[in-house]
Design a binder for these strands. Structure first.
Lengths: 338, 338
DNA sequence: AGGCATGATTTGATCGTTCAAGTGAAGGAA
DNA sequence: TTCCTTCACTTGAACGATCAAATCATGCCT
């Protein structure tokens, strides 16, 4: 209610000065143990909480971390970022931060959003998602010397300045999916992914290729590239299966593609059904709600872990340590589809 | 970069005092037109942006609106709130606000989160989602006299103090779905919803009942209540169809339930298939990604509109006007399933 | 004993904005 | 003329915290 407890109130209650209270909270090591305890008790009793506005005015620290939420949803894959947002909210609180969300469409608009936010709310750091080739956002933030971490590794060819990042090893994910299929006896395994040039897409294709190579299986003619979408996945799957009737399994770079592929895989089609002796196996990527719902085997990204790492890397950055990074391992969630 | 433009800089550039600049920005009507223009030019030229921290320290206004993001996802239905979050982020920016997100599990924890946020970040308002019977959050906020709006109408029996709310007319949605089915020739239409007592669930059941009544169709024995989930939906559907072989369509209170029902509806089952002459039609609620993906006819909530209304109602509240509310109409998205 | 470094705490100034009160000029009414 | 209003703008103080510098013991060395 009358929550107007200031640092001066605490000081009075503990019989010390304002600054000592401030020290207890910010640099406890300079305060004598006994005094520290007394102050903490007073803080507790009065229910004191720092006024972030005042602190921020003096220090420039706002206690806020800014993150983008996408204005439009591709429906299925967008939800990965939402789940990441949830996880990040929790991790940030642990570290004493809160999340400020913003929207922006495209790199340049997002940079404009940075400027806007910095002018008005001064977030202490940014968390960038969906990094890509020639990402203007990272270079801009680096130039400005602003702290940030990306969820997604830097895909840039040129080894620009280092910055902290967290990512999930996509290749390991498709590798796991492919290996799983091989273990189940599949020998002709197709891949449906995105056109060359997207870091994430190329990475996922690599994993599939790697697993086939390791098993001594041929990959020629077994890969298709298309834009992300259910219809696109369906078309690519139809194309692949028509071109090579021996195919019995499909590894997809996303759940959207996989869902489309599944439409084809589950419909009885004389051309290949005889060879396959049943349905074509399909795996997706991201373990979205849709995958759970329709029993799609999919690669799961450890988003909570990623969020914790993001915050930890930022904390290290604040302490002046050089930018670190973390590459996390995904896991395969096996369901009916494969 | 050296973004350290203060109100004093602008004042100097425009040849006026600090306060006049402040007035131009906050109460333009008290400033002479000519001066106002001169100040605005200076603002523009210097790229001045108010420092929210300083403003907030003086006024108590933070420019932040707090909203919860759910820590855990039920996978399918959770995404509705995510979509709402996106929409709200955009509407808030239009009105000069930013969104601060937090997590909390249960009413009491959420109230604790309110206190925490108020002490440290002083959000100007809260947006509450998922209102329910005996919602302790709304009563707490009302007691404290804090501004908030709920997305979800107040379901409380006792007409407590009024507060602004926005909601989507769930009954209208199930009514539309049911009417659509009737128009397509269905006569025995079942309903799968949640146990009595949840405002949202009861509301949706009402709509189904209303549509049947209006068409002079019997509803006895056609309703099932279960917890939300795919397996639950499947079980309820199986039960309903077994109990009444004449049923040819199912209206569901959520996409999760509908998805489960769809499993049953699409499998050939001699018991009823002969009567239905095909598959059992199914409709869901929320028009989630899953619905889009699998071609489920579903009731779509106008979330962007809801978000705009939330912000507008808060703005009116800030102006001292009495709490308003808005009941928005959903729309039926017809796909293959019905 | 005197000087000096060290540790623990206090005091004054300050961040950028807005509120409340004040100034000064112009215009009317007495 | 004198006084009072009104309008347009200015000035000092304050919000609550932290920084930088000052104070005051205390212990140690010479």
């Amino acid at each position: 209610m009358a929550d107007k407890v200031t640092i001066a109130d605490v000081a009075r209650a503990a019989g010390v000065s304002r600054q000592t209270v401030s020290n207890v909270l910010n640099t406890p090591e300079v305060v004598r143990e006994e005094t520290r305890q007394r102050v903490l008790d007073a803080v507790e009793e009065l229910g004191y909480r720092v006024n972030q506005a005042a602190r921020r005015m003096r220090t420039g620290r706002s206690g806020l971390i800014a993150i983008r939420v996408d204005p439009e949803h591709d429906g299925i894959n967008g939800s990965v970022l939402d789940r990441f947002l949830h996880a990040l909210t929790e991790s940030a609180v642990q570290a004493g931060y809160r999340l400020l969300v913003y929207t922006a469409d495209g790199d340049d608009r997002e940079i404009a959003a940075f400027e806007d936010l910095l002018g008005a709310y001064e977030p202490d750091a940014f968390v960038l998602t969906s990094t890509h080739h020639k990402d203007r956002r990272t270079s801009w933030l680096l130039e400005q010397g602003l702290p940030f971490v990306t969820f997604g590794r830097p895909w840039s060819e040129l080894p620009a300045l280092p910055h902290p990042w967290v990512d999930v090893d996509g290749a390991a994910g498709t590798d796991a999916a492919t290996s799983h299929l091989i273990a189940k006896g599949h020998r002709r395994i197709g891949f449906i992914g995105w056109p060359d040039g997207s870091g994430v897409g190329d990475d996922r294709r690599q994993g599939w290729l790697r697993a086939l190579d390791r098993a001594g299986l041929d990959a020629t003619g077994l890969s298709r590239a298309t834009t992300d979408g259910i219809a696109d996945g369906e078309a690519a799957a139809r194309d692949l299966l028509a071109a090579d009737p021996a195919i019995t399994a499909l590894v997809c770079a996303s759940d959207s593609l996989a869902l489309g592929a599944l439409h084809v895989a589950r419909e009885p089609s004389p051309a290949w059904r005889a060879d396959a002796g049943g349905f074509v196996a399909v795996t997706g990527f991201d373990d979205t709600a849709v995958a759970k719902a329709i029993g799609l085997t999919s690669v799961h990204q450890p988003l909570a872990e990623a969020a914790v790492n993001c915050v930890a890397l930022l904390a290290r950055l604040f302490e002046g340590q050089p930018p670190g990074h973390a590459l996390l391992q995904p896991s395969l969630v096996v369901r009916q589809s494969a």
